[in-house]
Nucleic acid binder design. Structure first.
Length: 416
RNA sequence: GCGAUCGUAGCUCAGUUGGUUAGAGCGCCGGUUUGUGGUACCGGAGGUCGCGGGUUCAAACCCCGUCGAUCGCCCCA
């Protein structure tokens, strides 16, 4: 490669071949499942005013404090490449009068941007599928959303991933729990890991998730959210879990599961590969494949009326890794022109095949003697060779003997 | 942001304690061969060894920096 050729931006990907097929498979499957659940498709801007994210995610979160791609536009306004979908969708809900459609079920997918150290399964431009239910405060909304996620994973053929479920309670429960946790960990602060000492100030809930051996002894006895749940919050969570059981969605309770963004309340969940499974190995050090929860407080933080909502997002690249490389679809027909005098006949046939819905490709370049071998290497149901100069039908139609081969052959010979 | 490993043709990789003109397989291009089928043989193109500096008579190889990839931490989808 010439040194004049610019390199791709760090953390971006050029996806091609079987990886691109896996990516498309994830998106296509999501589109199909989303229709089954009657979620409406939306397309959102890739950038927003910086405050949309700063106010909704929480100023102290890692995403806002150090991972956003922010810049001033020519008018001097601070804009940010979206690091996630939920905040932008919430903003759109408020600014477009979408309240009239509540409860509103929407789905989208596209690129997100986060300035992080790239790794396997972690990129600076990455892609998510996303589903949200806005204006629905009932636990049934959580259940429907989780059932959709569960079905999506099943239809993708991903079996060794389990729903880890927790509740963070309502605002009062969460605040009380948080205060108690701070007191508990502060008493043993000196014995905690350096990371956890920092987390004590910034995000004490995350200490519960620590993998550091120095923290482990304190985690088992740490206070559980259950002790702080209000009756209402407890009833809400019970309704979610019984709904999941009724819907046939398997789940496990994950008492230490918290979410990184400030706006979450009540239900919080992640789909995580089972320990030692093929999926766990495929994901490297990343674990969460799909995550989300309820964010009843978000609309108010953006200046709107209190509006309950739930949502989730999943990394397309991570799902694609679990799906594995996928074969590109076989061509219905490959036409090989072994004699250039038959080129126009071949072009004509190629056009007819395509307009009648057959996928077709033509090989007519390079050494004529090598074209047959080249054509044979293209996966196809039928291979049509133009070799003799005689007018009329091509010299030979070869194929795999399957239905598609027969259909192509019949089409060429009889025109239908 | 921190720590570790790695970077040689389009791809997968060899390359000795530093020593002529850096190799192989696959792929690509061409020729011959074959002709109900992914044949075989011959030839060719393609690399300032990621980039920049340093040590040395001499660097793909040793040293420093930088960019990138991968792994762990952190964080998250």
């Amino acid at each position: 490669m010439s040194k004049k050729t610019p390199q791709a931006i760090r953390g971006t990907q050029d996806i091609f071949g079987s990886d691109a097929e896996a990516f498309a498979f994830v998106v296509e499957t999501f589109e199909r499942v989303r229709r089954l659940y009657r979620f409406r498709r939306v397309e959102m801007p890739v950038f927003e005013k910086t405050e949309v994210f700063a106010r909704s995610l929480g100023e102290t979160t890692d995403v806002v404090s150090k991972e956003m791609y922010s810049f001033d536009d020519r008018g001097g306004e601070s804009l940010t490449l979206r690091p996630e979908f939920t905040a932008g969708i919430a903003r759109a809900f408020l600014t477009n009068g979408w309240q009239q459609y509540a409860p509103l079920k929407v789905a989208t997918h596209g690129p997100l941007f986060r300035y992080e150290r790239p790794q396997k399964g972690r990129y600076r431009q990455f892609h998510q599928i996303d589903a949200e239910v806005i204006g629905a405060g009932e636990p049934q909304a959580d259940v429907e959303l989780l059932a959709m996620a569960d079905q999506l994973l099943k239809e993708l053929g991903i079996a060794d991933v389990t729903l880890h479920l927790n509740t963070l309670g309502d605002v009062e429960s969460r605040d009380a729990w948080r205060a108690a946790l701070i007191d508990y960990f502060r008493a043993v602060k000196d014995q905690l890991s350096k990371d956890s000492q920092d987390r004590l100030e910034k995000n004490p809930l995350r200490i519960l998730d620590s993998k550091d051996p120095r923290d482990k002894p304190f985690l088992a006895d740490a206070l559980k959210i259950d002790a702080f749940l209000s009756d209402e919050a407890r009833a809400f969570f019970a309704a979610v879990t019984s709904g999941l059981d009724a819907a046939g969605v398997k789940w496990v309770r994950a008492e230490s599961l918290v979410r990184g963004l400030d706006y979450y309340r009540h239900t919080a969940f992640e789909f995580i590969p089972d320990e030692g499974s093929a999926s766990a190995a495929a994901l490297g050090s990343q674990s969460t494949v799909l995550g989300g929860g309820r964010y009843d407080g978000l609309m108010e933080s953006l200046g709107g009326a209190a509006t309950p909502a739930v949502g989730w997002a999943a990394g397309i690249e991570r799902l694609a890794m679990l799906v594995g490389a996928r074969e590109e679809a076989k061509a219905d027909a490959v036409i090989v022109v072994e004699n250039d005098e038959r080129l126009d006949d071949a072009i004509s046939l190629l056009g007819k095949l395509r307009s009648c819905g057959f996928s077709a490709e033509m090989i007519a370049s390079g050494s004529p003697r090598k074209r047959f071998d080249k054509a044979k290497k293209i996966p196809a149901h039928a291979l049509v060779s133009f070799v003799v100069t005689d007018e009329g039908s091509p010299m030979r139609i070869m194929g795999d003997g399957g239905e598609c081969h027969t259909a192509v052959e019949s089409f060429i010979l009889t025109g239908r």
